[in-house]
Every structure is written in structure tokens, then in C-alpha cells.
Amino acid sequence: MSGSRHDEDGFGVGRRAAAASLSRAALAATLLVVGYFLVPLERADPATWTWLAIALTVWAVVCVRQVLAVISSPTPRLRVVEALGLTVPLLLVVFALTYAALGRVDAAAFTEPLDRMDALYFTVTVFATVGLGDIAPVSTTARVVTTLQMVLGLIAVGLIARVLFGAASLASQRRDSEHPKPEER
């Protein structure tokens, strides 16, 4: 079919829908990063583990909700883009806030003091497995949190993407069985 509409196997239902999906994903990521810089950290205290546990629980709930949204979406592959645009930046912001809080509680937790930008930069280098070495965890707590981020980053890239794309495939199969395409002659 020509024009802006494609079948779902063509990875989309049209250029407008794809653009809207990408825009929503970009907006979610942008809002999370802006929110990261606006969240007050003046009262950083040793309750970093509690904060991290709560934040990761919220992240897990968001991930589950996104999988359910993909399954029930009429355009599941586009919904995956939106889900990844929310879940991955949310994970990065959670760890960046944790590193920034750790840096405020213990200035020697890393090889250099971390401000918010440094914490976000460090988080992205760990997630991307670049590990430039200019900032490194020194304290046991910082190393444990960094190791946890590495493991969750691998899970996020592998398992979450697989689950979301599996959910998209399941939803596409469901949709196709409910609305079969006319056979070509």
C-alpha cells in the first residue's frame, strides 16, 4: 500500500503515528532529565539504600505497566518505542540521583566529587559500558551501587527489550487473529 499508511509488519501504521510515538518517547526522556535536575538534594542523608530500593520498585512497576500497555495497544511496536523511551531514562535517572546523593553523603565515594551533571555522566558511561575511567567508584557502597546498575543495565537492555518486543509480537498476533487481512488474489 502506498502513502503514509503501512501494515504493522512494516513497523508502523503511518508516518504520523510513528512521529507521535517518537515524540512521546523523547518528551518522556526530556521530562525525566529535566526533573532530575530539579529534584532537591539539599538534605542528602545516609538513607540512600532506602531511596534506591523504593525507586527501583517504582521502576519495576513502571516496566510491568509498560509491558501491559504494549500488549493491549493497537500499535504494539510503536508502543514499545514509547515504553523504552520511558523505562530506560527512568532507570538512568534513578541511578544518577543515587550517585549524586552518595557523593553528597561521602565526598570520597568516587574518584572526584560528583555534581548532578557528573552523576548523570557517570551513570550513562556505566550503562553504555564505556567506562572511561575518569570517574570511578571508590567506596564499597558506591561500588555496590555501580555493580547493581551494571546488572540492571544488562537486564534492561536484554530482558526488558525482549519482553517488550515479545509483548508487541503477541499483541500483533492477537490483532491479526481478530482482524484477518483479506487474502491477496
Rank of each mutant, 00 (worst) to 15 (best):
R162W: 15
V157W: 10
L154M: 08
A18I: 12
T129C: 03
G35H: 03
P180T: 00
L32G: 01
R65D: 13
V94F: 11
R79M: 10
V93H: 01
E184N: 14
Y99R: 12
S139C: 09
F122H: 09
S169I: 05
R43I: 01
G158Q: 07
S72Q: 13
R77C: 03
S4G: 14
D118V: 05
F127R: 00
V80S: 03
L148E: 09
E178D: 15
L86F: 06
A69P: 04
I135Q: 05
Y99D: 13
T75I: 11
P113L: 02
M150A: 15
A20M: 11
A161H: 10
A47T: 13
L92N: 07
A161M: 08
E183N: 10
R116I: 01
R24N: 07
S73K: 01
P74H: 04
M150V: 15
V80C: 04
P46G: 08
V157Y: 11
P76R: 00
Y99F: 15
S23N: 02
R5T: 12
R5W: 12
P76F: 02
V34D: 01
L52S: 04
V130N: 00
L92E: 11
V144G: 04
L92T: 01
G12K: 03
A29G: 06
E183W: 11
L84Q: 04
E42N: 10
L170S: 04
S4F: 13
G103C: 02
G85H: 03
L148D: 05
G3P: 08
A53S: 08
L78V: 04
A47S: 14
